[in-house]
Amino acid sequence: MAFRNILLSAIVVGIFSGLLYGLFQHFQISPIIYAAEAYEVADAAEAPAPHGHAETAGHHEHNEEAWGPEDGAERIGYTIGADIAIGIAYALFMISLMALHNLKANKPKLTMATGAVWGIASMLIFFAAPAMFGLHPEVPGTEAAILENRQGWWSLCVALTAAGIAVLYYAPIKLKLGGLLLAAIPHIIGAPMPEHHGFANTDPQAIEALSQLTTQFYLFTAVGMGIFFILLGALSGLAVQRFVKLDA
């Protein structure tokens, strides 16, 4: 059963890579998020004054009535759980497409090593293209365009970059240029940007601190995503080579 094999392999690969990223995040990324939240101001509608909201430090809920995990172990637990879930989702994409490759493509079958290369390609698709060339990784409290527009652009960018890389790899030489064009489309359209860049908190000291935190955050997410996707790709390649039987 291809579906069951893919699902089980993706769960195992997702747990390994998501857990590793969760630990990396716990030590390197979450401290930056917590530090940025100390400068987060309450929503303008609830509290029009931009200053004097230090008491909201550590609170990340936008709506005070909505449930959210308690800071500490509960929040860390949910974060690592979410990392694993995202790992499983990405592993499902990766292993499914690798299985499709082995089934249909006239190219060498996947191994752990070529899987790692697929991981680098995924890093380009899911991180470099949408985040480094578009919607930069942001700490909480950064001004940004309407969420739905950014999510829409993110999805478009991921889909077109993936399609572009697939065309570059699989299409005949004459059509390969089309892959670059596909991947360029979201950047020609342009990521949705806020009217003015900056942070919700307008205190100069807060802006200085948040700018530094943003730089650190960008660096550590890029490093972490690199590790995550290469591991995810290599493990997915191994899983497809060993466990996903399509002719059974």
């Binding site: 969760g22 979450s30 998020i33 990784p137």
Partner: peptide
């Protein structure tokens, strides 16, 4: 709220 930190860390 549950996935907040993970969403940020994956640059969603």
């Amino acid at each position: 709220n549950a996935a907040h930190d993970a969403r940020h860390s994956f640059a969603f």
